[in-house]
Design a binder for these strands. Structure first.
Lengths: 98, 98
DNA sequence: GCGATACATTAAAATATGCTAATATTATAT
DNA sequence: ATATAATATTAGCATATTTTAATGTATCGC
């Protein structure tokens, strides 16, 4: 395998995660989940977007391993998949914040 | 101003940065610059993409405040704009790495 | 079972992004 | 001043992403 190829693969992998984080609403949803577990309907209220859009965003974040889900009766509650995720968002805010 | 609106703006801002980081080649370029300043021609060699593509990527990262540039004769050398950036990429690798 | 609630999925239209090719700029050397 | 090397910019096309709208699935209470 060519030199640097390994590094490029790592970048492609991380870039895919960054892409998932690169949508304003999606990132906002993630930030909401940083405060604690929440149902789709809760997120819909604070986010203000149509329900299918929220579901699509959450679905994508789940595929990418950013969040996890569990059913509670008829509702589904989402949560952050890794406790180190909030720190990354906060670091970004410190560096690139207003 | 409505509640949560401030938070949404922050997310939009950070999401824009994430979007810039969300391209494999761009992220690879940034990682190269994490090792130290480099000229466009150097980056072209390790990256293997056409020169205009590299320039476009660098130009965008510059606009977003991720990198800085300075001329040295006929060549332009790029560098990371903030020393805290490499840590973010490394954190991401730790969490989402192979 | 039936209706209602909460969520998920899909397809198609609208929009944004990235690549290519051509051209422009900037600085050095002769 | 002209030529050359290094980098930047632009426009147009191809592709990917987002949104919208409609439909599907699952769970609970009756």
């Amino acid at each position: 395998m060519a030199k640097g190829s390994q590094e490029k693969k790592r970048c492609a992998r991380i870039a895919a995660i960054f892409k998932t984080l690169s949508h304003p609403q999606r990132l906002f949803l993630l930030c909401c989940l940083c405060e604690g577990e929440a149902a789709v309907s809760d997120l819909q209220k604070v986010c203000g977007a149509p329900q299918p859009v929220i579901s699509q965003h959450l679905s994508r974040m789940r595929r990418e391993g950013l969040v996890k889900a569990r059913r509670t009766g008829t509702s589904v509650r989402y949560r952050i998949a890794d406790p180190r995720i909030p720190a990354i968002v906060r670091s970004m805010e410190k560096i690139f914040g207003p």
